[in-house]
Write a protein that binds this DNA or RNA. Structure first.
Lengths: 228, 228
DNA sequence: TAAATTTTCAATCATTAGATAAGTTATTAA
DNA sequence: TTAATAACTTATCTAATGATTGAAAATTTA
């Protein structure tokens, strides 16, 4: 019984082999292609459970593939893990803004690969964007109906913006969000602010959360994430 | 906009996933917990619209949870659907005697689950937000039948709108409501007024309530709430 | 270690709520 | 029906609260 169908796109055969070998071993069914065109065609026809996508591709490149899939209702739900060369922060950010779900920088170990794949698939399974749902994570209880956060039965007051940011991040633990994504969610699209503003809210959040502040993690050069 | 808040308690993650997946899909907001203690705590603070309760739980078991909630004036109105293993007739009977509203035997199909949930919610609708229910909270007695509010045996006159706002807020102490929600409830949906109109009524309410006015709390940037 | 990024902090700016008054609409009594 | 009264809404001003910025310090990364 296969655990999931994974489509992998990379122009380097070595990488494809590495991915195929390690994921097959774990029971995933892996399809490998070497171009963006093939990726699009197979993604649309097979609707894989996950797409592992190299951003540097000849022809239609990874960013394009990501954009096209995420803008098509049929394929937007396919989770995407990007593969990037180290230091390509701008690509990572573009990809995340495009809707990609996670990224791995090359070179990577099989352990990392497997961990990310599992994490993304798990998150996808229980992802619900319900702003009124109670979020229970670690020792936090985020209760939107009461606009209240409790840590081990102690209540903490947050301003509206702080609360929303916390809720946004905690909704998808482990996912990285850029500052722009955070502003977009919290203040509405194209709200004109400096990214610094987000940092200040993050600081306030961490401070008020006290020892639980450590759950809000900085991803250097990319954004923030709530610890899984 | 969620159709209702449903709290689900089970120690098996699979069951929780099954419930969450199927009910979320239908537009319900689902919170999952794995122990009786958590269930009690969230049920009391959040007053969900429905509790789906496994009877076999480690620690405080389902029957206990049911008894405790049904014996507390605050939570007795929360409808409860029990989950039981096939053949546990005596548990089912105990549960029903305790005040549970329905039961489902495991294993169950999503269709059955949904049907029962809908049925129970339909039966219970309005009973919860029963506009004719007498509300006793702190030193206030709100009697909708007589359109009368008294504080420590002193009788206070309110206008129609003021009364309804007070009733609306006091119905769910601790919950924050936006001005928009208040107008919707009190004047009907899409009633064309400025949100600031609510503020003026709040001022009047607080003034007339005198020292009890402090129970109506402002949540800056969000709305108003009746102190729990 | 240098460069880039994040954190901190204080000053400034913007938004939100409270108080009060004035203007509208609805209700009641003559 | 009209006049008087009450209820409701809007407007304005002020105070309080929260959000944003920019610059310096600290930290992280290459």
């Amino acid at each position: 019984m296969p655990k999931g169908n994974i489509l992998t796109v990379d122009d380097e055969e070595d990488i494809l082999e590495l991915v195929r070998y390690n994921l097959s071993k774990e029971g995933y069914s892996v399809t490998c292609v070497t171009s963006g065109e093939e990726a699009l065609s197979i993604a649309r026809s097979n609707l894989p459970d996950l797409l592992i996508l190299d951003l540097m591709l000849p022809g239609v490149d990874g960013i394009d593939v990501c954009r096209i899939l995420k803008n098509d209702q049929k394929t937007e739900a396919i989770p995407i893990i990007m593969l990037t060369a180290k230091g390509e922060e701008s690509d990572i950010i573009t990809g995340l803004e495009m809707g990609a779900d996670d990224y791995i920088t090359k070179p990577f170990s099989p352990r990392i690969l497997l961990a990310r794949v599992k994490a993304v698939l798990r998150r996808k399974r229980n992802e619900f964007q319900d702003k009124s749902r109670i979020i229970k994570i670690h020792d936090l209880l985020i209760n939107p109906g009461r606009h209240e956060v409790s840590v081990k039965d102690r209540h903490i007051d947050f301003t509206r913006t702080e609360f929303r940011i916390l809720q946004f991040l905690a909704q998808r633990p482990g996912w990285v969000f850029t500052r722009y994504q955070i502003v977009d969610d919290v203040q509405g699209e194209d709200y004109p602010v400096t990214e610094r503003s987000v940092d200040v809210h993050i600081v306030a959040l961490r401070k008020k959360l006290g020892s639980s502040g450590k759950y809000i993690e900085t991803v250097h050069g990319v954004g923030y994430r709530f610890k899984e």
